[in-house]
Design a protein around this nucleic acid. Structure first.
Lengths: 221, 221
DNA sequence: TAGATTGTTAATCGATTAACAATC
DNA sequence: TAGATTGTTAATCGATTAACAATC
């Protein structure tokens, strides 16, 4: 009945002790993205080759990554989309619900609030903030825009783990400071500020242009 | 005067023949992102350790990546931000201007059109399209929203390399088909569709939630 | 059965890192 | 000079891949 892998004296591939290596965790996340999309499109089964086409990860590596955690596939058939989604969620320990606070009720904030991208992966926007008095009180999605004061009590009450910053670059650092004080551990930064945070806080800065540069390089060569 | 690296019999690190390896190209792109932000903030010099703090890439590796192309740094001082930006752009062959067509004039499209994220890296939005008649003709940024017909002639005339899709998921695949026909080679997909394209076309699907899952894993463990 | 696709091995290749001399 | 930081080496470690038996 155990879906855990025994920890022998030898470390299994792709893992260091209990933790996944960076590479494996990143790839599993990508598989999850494609699987979630595939599920929405009604696909019931997917092969490692199809996953490879969408993720650009070699199909052997996909099978290898997955087989390290169990025999999830059926030879001659492929992987069941539904069950693979829940297996990977288990491995990544992200099966639960995670609460997000969204900062900034401009175009980007509204786009995020009305999108499924976070909801599909178990992230729920529980509060939207903006410091522009003309926006406070407006309804965005199912939330009313609030002013961002007394962050600490809101973060505690709503059990907020992640803050998404869709604010102007000039406002980002001071907001980040407040968030750190309030105890937020993961900041998802859509602004162009280089955020300074203590080591226990993770900042992920969105960078579509960087992704494009990368794609362009391989197009140009 | 040559800024090129000689191609000896032995392959230099991080390169396969003429081309960068995937890893090096990805990391150089990330350095560029941080450098561009640092430049905006008025920073003139940056050390490999600082770059490491912002990119989470080991500082030795950063020095190694860079030193493969020349001696860009100054011992005891660090790297000049401006000159490193132009060196990396040269290496990635993305010094020039690249034209983008943006599809979708909703919240996300407007957020993209009014942002500097693409402009800062030499990408210029040259046209915005939407099939909603009520949006056609509206002004977004400096452009008027157009209807997306006769794509081929627009792509040719405006020399469009990249299409950015900020359209509803249901509309994405048929638009992608039209773009492929029109000769677009890179599609940046913000929808949740799993796009099917021929092998010569690159699709990059934006996935903030996946990035979050990944960050969350390391927070939870 | 025949065809397809997984799970796994074994070999190779590239990434990563600590350490330190060079030098600004 | 003293302190800082680069450029580079050498060793290790993890990622990648082709190939194929197992089996659905």
């Amino acid at each position: 009945m155990s879906s855990m892998i025994e920890n022998d004296a030898e470390t299994p591939f792709g893992k260091v002790g209990d933790k996944l290596t960076l590479g494996v965790a990143a790839r599993l996340s990508r598989y999850l993205q494609v699987l979630t999309q595939a599920k929405k499109m009604g696909k019931e089964t997917i092969s490692s080759q199809e996953l490879s086409d969408y993720t650009h990860v070699n199909s052997t590596q996909i099978r290898r990554d997955l087989s390290g955690f169990g025999k999830f596939g059926k030879r001659g058939v492929g992987y069941n989309v539904d069950s693979l989604v829940s297996q990977i969620r288990k491995i990544l320990r992200t099966s639960g619900q995670h609460n997000i606070a969204l900062f900034g009720a401009g175009h980007l904030g509204r786009a995020i609030a009305s999108s499924d991208i976070f909801a599909d992966h178990g992230f729920r926007v529980v509060a939207i903030f903006d410091n522009d008095p003309s926006k406070v009180g407006e309804t965005v999605g199912t939330h009313q825009v609030r002013q961002a004061h007394d962050l600490k009590s809101i973060v505690d009450e709503e059990d907020i783990v992640v803050a998404v910053l869709a604010v102007p670059t000039a406002a980002a650092q001071s907001l980040a400071d407040d968030l750190v004080t309030a105890g937020v551990k993961i900041i998802f930064n859509y602004s162009e500020a280089l955020l300074q945070v203590p080591p226990e806080v993770t900042v992920h800065t969105s960078s579509p242009a960087v992704d494009l540069l990368y794609a362009l390089y391989f197009y140009l060569t």
